[in-house]
Simulated scan of single mutants.
Amino acid sequence: MTCLTMKQRALPLLFRLVLGALFIALLAQLSIPSPQALGGIPITGQSLAVLLVGLLLPFPWGGGAVLLYLLLGGLGLPVFAEGGSGWPSFSGGSGGFLIGFFIAALGMGLLRRRGWGQHLGYSLLANGLGTAVIVGSGLLWLAYLYGWGKALEYGFYPFWLGAIVKILLGGFIAWSMLRNRNAV
């Protein structure tokens, strides 16, 4: 591959990386209120966007898009859920989930490399595994901060049903875009 060809290929990937970060920021603002009985913490489109970007962009570009998103939020742009931003977001209750986004996106890219997005069953499984990484990372951090009881109360119980919906939705969207690999 010539140097010119590599540059031509890198520019569209860099453009998709920026679009991926913006897509995550946009879906992070989609918010479904949760009843106070379930903790009152809203369900957002943030994790769905992370999983889609991770699976739709080739490895490691999906992880790069998530890293850019995290950097923008850390620097103070209101890109996190409900317009959140700043470095304190990483040390608070959502910090583990934010770190889990990056790890999940990298893993999704590796699964894409193995063709998982091209088959509906594997696409659904990839989204399930990515969700498990995000939730697991978030729960570990919450447990460190507040103990396991509070971690489950605030980081799992209000979100498990929404997580299943996002796994199904993300798996189907990614599969529909990747089954004909030339589409993305």
Rank of each mutant, 00 (worst) to 15 (best):
P42L: 01
L129V: 13
L27I: 08
F80R: 08
G92F: 15
I41G: 01
N182L: 06
P78N: 07
I167F: 08
K150Q: 10
S91I: 15
G76W: 05
E153N: 04
W141E: 03
P88N: 07
A81T: 13
L98N: 04
G45S: 08
W87H: 01
L55Y: 00
V66H: 15
G95Q: 13
A174R: 06
A126I: 12
V165W: 09
Y69Q: 02
W160G: 06
G64W: 14
L178D: 04
F23R: 00
S91H: 12
A28K: 06
V133I: 14
W87D: 00
V50H: 07
G121L: 13
I164S: 07
G76S: 02
L111V: 03
Y154G: 08
A37K: 05
L19E: 09
G95N: 11
L161V: 15
R179V: 03
W61F: 11
G73I: 01
Y146D: 07
G39F: 08
I43T: 01
I134M: 10
L139V: 05
L72T: 08
L106P: 10
L168R: 00
F90S: 06
L120R: 12
L168C: 03
S89A: 14
F23D: 00
I103C: 11
L22M: 13
L70D: 01
L51M: 15
A151S: 06
A174L: 12
F156Y: 15
V133F: 02
L125M: 10
F97E: 02
G107M: 10
L48V: 00
E82A: 14
A183F: 09
A25W: 10
I41D: 02
Y69N: 11
M177S: 03
G95W: 13
F101Q: 05
A143T: 06
W61Q: 13
E153T: 10
